[in-house]
Structures are given as C-alpha cells and as structure tokens.
Amino acid sequence: MKRLSVLLVLATVFAISSVASAQEEKMKYNEWQQQISMYTAQRDSLKNVLSSLNTDIANLKSQLAGLDQQYNSEMQKYLGMLHATEADMQSFDQTLTNLTNQMNNYMAMSDQDLCSHASDVKTAGAEIDSLKAMRLALAAEFYDRMQTLENDYSQVAARVAKCSQVATYTVGTWARNRDCLWNIAKKSTIYNDPWRWPKIYIANRDQIKNPDLIYPKEVLKIPANGPMNSEEKAAARAYYARKARMQRAAAGSSGS
C-alpha cells in the first residue's frame, strides 16, 4: 500500500511536469545550435557591413568639409572681384527686382497715364544709372536682367519724351478741308472724337476767340488725347448754353 502510494505520487508529479513543460516554448537542442550558428554568422557579417559604412561616412564628411572650405574661398574671391559683400548682392537684387516691376507697370500704361508719371520715370532712370555704375551690374546673376531693364527704360523714356512735345495742326480751308474744331477733333489722327473739340479750343485760347471761327493757315496746338478736364468741360457747357440762348433769341424774333 505504501509502495502503491509512492508510485502514485511519482506518476502524478511526472504527469504534471510533462504538461507544464509542454506549455513552455521548447526548442530541441540541435535546432537551437543551428539557429545560434546562423544568427552568429549573420551578426558578424552585419557588423562588418556597418563598420564599412561608418568608414565611408567619415570619409564623406571629411570630403564635404573640404568642399565647404573651397566654396567659401571661391565666394570670397568672387565677392572681392565685385567689390561687394553678400548683403550688397542681396540689396542689388532687390533693387533690380523693384525697378523691373516698376518698368513693367509703366510699359503697360497708356500714354496719357504714363505722362502723368513722367517725374517718377525720371527718378527710376536715375536709379538705373546708379545700378549700372556698380560692378555688380556686370555679375552673371544680374547682367541679363540689367540689359532687359535698360531696354525697357529706353522704350518708356522715349514715350515720356513725347509728352512734352506738342502736336500741331495747320488749319486748311472750309471749302477743301471742311476744317472746324469739331471736324479736326473727329479726325482719326487727332482724337477720333468730335466731342473733344474743347481741348483744342482751350489749348489755343490765344488764337481762338470764338470756337466757331478758325482761319486757314492757323497753326493749332493739339494737346495729348485723353478725357476732358474741368476747364475744357466748362468751356463746352458755356458754348452750348450760349448757342441755346442764340437759338431761342432767333426763334423769338422770327416769331414776332
């Protein structure tokens, strides 16, 4: 009975331990040995690869440091040739950009609007001359842009120059040319708008006493085209009011 109890206990213990060990991750020893060998070889190989990469990285960093020095040296030499600093270059770039934008705006304006900006154009021209006088204007970064700016300014300046020129028109005869202020203003080479005759009248007040009376060979100043100003409009109102009074007076006297 005693022996039976002992055997029973031993069997139970072994049964429990076998169940317990079956639940743990069990790897056969020879399989473990194979895995250890494989991973050890892999680790050693990867260490060599990493060591080689770290050597390459160190060399590349050294090369990059050398190139940084070379670049700084070349830049110093270049700036020395330009008699400028990097800040000077940035300032020049900004000024050039601003002037270019300004010229583009002027080129897009009508002649009338451009003439009202004549003094601004002249100021811009002086700024462009200042830039041209600097060595930076010859730098590769700015050279083409300076050329374009100068060309654009030439065009704008030529248009502004015409603002001060006064166009003229020599009056022909009524018989041949049908010249009166209305018809002159109507011409496509003048205003292409007969209602703008007061502009010619006001510009020639020294010659024209009565807008209905102009004479052959009179040389009339032709102001630049554009909307009528207040003086010209007032002259037109006064003329038509006087015309209306004369017509009423003529109608009254013929009726009586």
């Binding site: 990059l64 030499k77 270049y78 330009l82 730098a139 050279y143």
Partner: peptide, 18 residues
Amino acid sequence: IADKQDQIKKVQSNEQFL
C-alpha cells in the same frame, strides 16, 4: 557633396563671366 561641387562650379563660372 554633389550639390556643393555644383555650387563651386557655378561660382567659378561666374568669376570667368565677370
């Protein structure tokens, strides 16, 4: 490194232009 080499070439080219 490639970018820096390009920058150096650019500056040298600009020097010749000037």
